[in-house]
Design a protein around this nucleic acid. Structure first.
Lengths: 225, 225
DNA sequence: AGACACAGTGTACGATAGACACAGTTCGAC
DNA sequence: GTCGAACTGTGTCTATCGTACACTGTGTCT
């Protein structure tokens, strides 16, 4: 069994032998709880098994290995996308879609880090793509460009979530202050930018600013076609 | 010694005792070579030490731990940003900056994955920020917005690099085909988008499309101020 | 000259992912 | 109804990895 089969396979039919005490969903949920509470590093086969009251090796009856478990956790944590039918127009739809994705990922910040590197797209993730592509249906873009728009929005969300995952904003600022202390003359523009943004510029403002610039850019592109 | 000191500290002055046979730079370079050749997973203290002809534990005389070594590798691999002085105007500068960053990261795809999660900004990384912020100097944006623009561009580059890091484009397509095979009716828009983009839409086109949309969006925003 | 600080080594430990053999359990075929 | 095959969870074992610690040798400062 590989990742594709695990994520996409049919739920197993009636089989011989003792009934499994668990389901793959149980594993995913246990892993997600652990990751939410203590971070991705706390997710070990041992601890997932403990949480479910079985031995470490029993988990290998459900998933081929840890990587596959994490892939499952990611897709489960993402969940199904919200419906966008009640919104009118591609732009409000894409904006709501991006903000919804932000909320989901913010709830499970570890999922961004877990999806670094090559991986297989899960059913939920592909459904998110499907919904977004439906929103841009009919626009004067070819398929590649439509996907590029989705990728741009996703990148923005992922980056912002990652940036403030475990680091609180104050911690980041504090680190930068430490670094810039005594070295400010080498980075005058950084110092100036930090100074003139101290008041406002929360994380959410950064996200919406970026998203709105991208959407503006797409709108402009469409109007020029 | 912590990460900040390692990345930002002065090169050690004259000290007592035997001369170190290595430098932190040697460690970083050895790690980078390993990661370039065999991926980030191949970077173990053992193998870095082997490559340098010392024992595993000797490396701990130079770096406090593996995380710090990786942070050092990332900043070293990124290198100093190119000068943008010969370019005129914020837009060509930011575009060149983004493409330069893309090239650097593409040369060391593992660095994107290595920078997932909370980490300390290194000197080279901060210099990239400084150069980009200098490019948007004088624009009608506050410091936070300037940083938001940089973040948006960086996100775009990082995402695209990550997407095609170890996966070749063909491999990605093949995986999607496998998944969509027999499940296409559940994802009609995904199928349609893939079909109408089969011909063109290389990775680089995706990158420049996204970058140009963001820059368009910023330009529009400025013109509306 | 001698003390001290520091470099590299060797050994050891705990955590981790995972292989494998085994005992008990349930279903299907006869 | 019985028996065998398939399957589940367990226990044991191994390889790998990061890192702590004690030790030996070396070069510099007093």
């Amino acid at each position: 069994m590989d990742v594709i089969e695990l994520l996409w396979g049919e739920p197993a039919g009636p089989r011989r032998g003792p009934r499994p005490t668990l389901t793959v969903g149980d594993l995913a949920r246990a892993g997600i709880e652990l990751a939410d509470a203590e971070g991705l590093a706390a997710v070990t086969m041992q601890r997932v098994a403990e949480a479910l009251g079985v031995t470490k090796m029993a988990t290998y009856r459900y998933v081929p290995g840890k990587d596959e478990l994490v892939a499952l956790m990611v897709d489960t944590a993402l969940g199904a996308p919200p419906p966008l039918d009640d919104l009118d127009g591609w732009r409000p739809k894409l904006r709501a879609w991006s903000l919804a994705m932000n909320e989901r990922m913010q709830a499970h910040p570890w999922s961004v880090r877990a999806t670094a590197g090559p991986r297989v797209t899960g059913p939920n993730e592909l459904t998110w793509a499907e919904v977004a592509l439906a929103a841009v249906d009919g626009l004067a873009l070819d398929g590649g460009q439509k996907m590029d728009v989705i990728v741009a929005l996703t990148s923005q969300v992922r980056s912002l979530v990652e940036q403030t995952a475990d680091n609180s904003e104050e911690r980041i600022s504090a680190t930068w202050m430490t670094i810039l202390d005594g070295r400010g003359e080498r980075f005058p523009h950084v110092v100036a930018a930090l100074a003139s943004s101290a008041r406002h510029s929360s994380r959410d403002q950064g996200l919406t600013f970026g998203l709105d610039r991208i959407l503006d850019g797409v709108e402009l592109y469409l109007s020029r076609q």
